[in-house]
Design a binder for these strands. Structure first.
Length: 636
RNA sequence: GCUGAUGUAGCUCAAUUGGCAGAGCAGCUGAUUUGUAAUCAGCAGGUUGGAGGUUCAAGUCCUCUCGUCAGCUCCA
């Protein structure tokens, strides 16, 4: 007998070798129906795993990430099996097929280019495989046998995968019906559990994510335990698509993009209002956090970029021009300019940390395929800052920056997660400096108790960084804020400060952005608010609708009063019914609509309807204005 | 940049096998003076992304090219 500790702490005894599933069935049939995988002593495992020693067991259902992961991973195997069935075992080579955040994919290599019609066909076959309810059986094999088996099958990618595993790695196969795949698992007990499948799209993906390798075909799909859940998810995607900032940007007349300047966004008057509000908020916050603002030129001489290392490390992304026969570069970053300002005068340790901020317009040549609305563009304004400090101030200063980030993001109700990026391949400096910098960032994160993922090799060429990621309407995350620690630029530019000892010392530098790029941040906000901006950001804050011509004078008088108070207000006096004008104001997501007719005119009232609400409230015009001003001030 | 898809009026979309480019909304004009998501009528709007080619005839077929979309790669 072995002793099994359950999640609730209770302990049960069971005969040695009983499978996790049989064990579960012995005390809970209902959970046994729902369970998809098990966690045995913290290790994700199949339900068919025999329990052979005292251990702790947790059962995972679709409500647990691990349970979902198992179901979707099994779905990816069903996908591969269906493709093999339809197009022939030999015509398809399988690469990798993992579960991902909201679904799964499988990368395959085959001559025939698949299209939408093929997806439908494959999905039907997958549904058939689900109906067949094939048991999914795990087996362990010797490395040599596995290589031989996959070589015989012509599965060259699987062979490469196995050869890359450590010599002593346990190699497992999963078999369902006639189909066997190399896989670490865990998987479901049988294919019948995958009740709802939807293949979504087919795209290209490089083998191992390397552009030098062959491009494979990647089929994305998602799978759920119940049809209703799948439908709800697909509906959610449709709703999210309605919030797409590119669509709303056009509908709300915020910005546009043109063939004449791919990746160079044009801001319309409405978009500029949002932009300027963001900037003035930004200035207020930075003033409070002790920053000074500067501005540096967009085009600077080649020599500067050679000195900074950009010429060597960042050339691919830069644009160039010639002035009077000399090479100049259009700045892709603001730091070298900021450094020149620092060097215009001697600095004392007493001034440090010296925080200089700059709204800098940078240009970067991004790959054409990477451009995406405002989220990924070729010119953007970084809300940059360069902080020069004593090495002993690093940790505290980073905490100070994180405080600022937290304040800004919470003003917008945005949630974020942090990632630490370490030394990349094409970088400057010694290992020692990199280790020191990375350790400083790590310790700042840890002291703060901020969870973070690590991106090995993803740092800037001059230093490691902490990135802050925000999420768009489709759940994709975008890097916005970043804090980059830099011990190399100060070296390259021979920057100094005079220490307490009267000697020259090297300052440490931090590059950081909160919004990241104003453009991207606006894109995030459009999706976050679904275009219905809070009043302080809304391009038009109030729309006044006079019921008839008779009420127009009152409406315009109200407008003038509000306009003079700095509010953004318009009167819609068009010769249309109230319903028509009301609808348009709602569609344009204007925060407040004021209706004025005979009733309101009599008592100096306004009838207030808030965006998205059906009900209206009648109040004194002055009372409304006060309420509005308060909301704007509080950024409510 | 790569793989695939795609491009028709300001927007959303039609246009049989190649056979006269069309609708709704938006815009303009007129009527209507309206009480909380679309009043009625009329008018105007296009070198079908661009350049070649095949054909008696091209939105439709072919080649090239540009943009866009999805993903990969890359990044704020």
């Amino acid at each position: 007998m072995v002793k099994i500790t359950l999640k609730d702490g209770s302990i049960r005894e069971v005969e040695n070798g009983t499978t996790a599933l049989a064990f579960l069935k012995s005390f809970s049939n209902s959970l046994a129906k729902k369970a998809l995988s098990a966690k045995i002593d913290g290790v994700n495992s199949d339900l068919m795993t025999p329990l052979t020693k005292d251990c702790a067991v947790e059962f995972m259902t679709f409500d647990d990430a691990d349970g979902r992961w198992a179901l979707r991973h099994s779905a990816s195997h069903v996908l591969a099996q269906a493709i093999k069935r339809i197009y022939g075992e030999k015509n398809v080579q399988l690469a990798i097929g993992p579960a991902i955040e909201n679904g799964f994919y499988y990368d395959i290599d085959m001559k025939k280019q698949l299209g939408q019609a093929d997806l439908d066909k494959i999905q039907k076959e997958m549904e058939k495989i689900v109906k067949e309810n094939l048991p999914i059986v795990r087996s362990e094999v010797q490395r040599a046998d596995a290589i031989k088996m996959f070589e015989e099958k012509g599965e060259i990618y699987k062979v490469m995968l196995i050869k890359d595993l450590p010599e002593d790695a346990l190699i497992t196969l999963y078999t369902q019906g006639e189909f066997t795949d190399l896989c670490a698992g865990p998987h479901l007990v049988s294919t019948g559990k995958i009740k709802a499948i939807k293949l979504q799209n087919i795209t290209g993906a490089y083998w191992r994510g390397d552009a030098k390798n062959k491009m494979l075909q990647r089929i994305y799909g998602t799978a759920f335990e119940k049809k209703a859940d799948l439908d709800a998810y697909l509906h959610m995607l449709e709703e999210a698509a309605k919030r797409d900032h590119r669509k709303l940007g056009r509908e709300l007349d915020l910005f546009s993009l043109h063939e004449e300047g791919p990746g160079f966004p044009f801001f319309h008057p409405n978009g500029m209002i949002i932009r300027n509000e963001l900037i003035s908020y930004w200035r207020a916050v930075h003033r409070r956090y002790g920053y000074q603002e500067i501005q540096t030129p967009i085009i600077l001489n080649r020599r500067l970029w050679e000195q900074s290392g950009h010429w060597e490390h960042y050339k691919e992304n830069m644009y160039f021009t010639k002035i009077d026969g000399e090479d100049y570069a259009i700045k892709p970053m603001n730091c070298p300019g900021g450094i020149l300002i620092y060097k215009t005068q001697p600095h004392s340790y007493r001034e440090l940390p010296l925080r200089t901020a700059e709204l800098g317009l940078v240009h970067r040549h991004e790959l054409s395929g990477a451009l995406h609305g405002l989220m990924r563009v070729r010119n953007f304004t970084q809300d940059d800052a360069h902080i020069f400090m004593l090495p002993s101030q690093i940790e505290e200063e980073i905490q100070h920056i994180i405080d600022l980030f937290d304040e800004v993001y919470s003003t917008f109700g945005l949630s974020y997660h942090a990632e630490l990026s370490t030394r990349p391949k094409n970088s400057m400096g010694t290992d020692e400096v990199w280790e020191k910098s990375t350790a400083a960032l790590k310790s700042a994160l840890e002291h703060r108790g901020l969870d973070y993922a690590v991106n090995e090799g993803d740092g800037a060429f001059y230093g490691p960084k902490i990135d802050f990621h925000l999420t768009d309407s489709l759940g994709r995350t975008w890097q916005c804020g970043t804090i980059q620690l830099d011990m190399l630029m100060p070296e390259k530019f021979e920057m100094t400060y005079t220490g307490e000892d009267g000697q020259k010392h090297r300052p440490v530098m931090v590059h950081r952005v909160v919004y990241g790029s104003i453009e991207r941040f606006i894109g995030i906000l459009i999706e976050h608010y679904a275009g219905a901006f809070p009043v302080w950001l809304a391009p038009i804050q109030v729309k006044i609708l006079p019921i008839t011509e008779k009420h127009a004078d009152y409406a315009y008088a109200l407008k003038k009063k509000m306009f003079d108070l700095g509010l953004r207000v318009e009167v819609d006096n068009r010769n249309e019914k109230v319903g028509y004008r009301m609808r348009e104001s709602q569609v344009k997501k204007i925060p407040y609509i004021l209706l004025v007719g005979d009733k309101e005119l009599a008592d100096n009232n306004v009838s207030v309807r808030k965006h998205g609400e059906q009900s209206t409230k009648t109040m004194q015009a002055d009372e409304f204005i006060k309420m509005l001003q308060k909301q704007i001030k509080e950024k409510a």
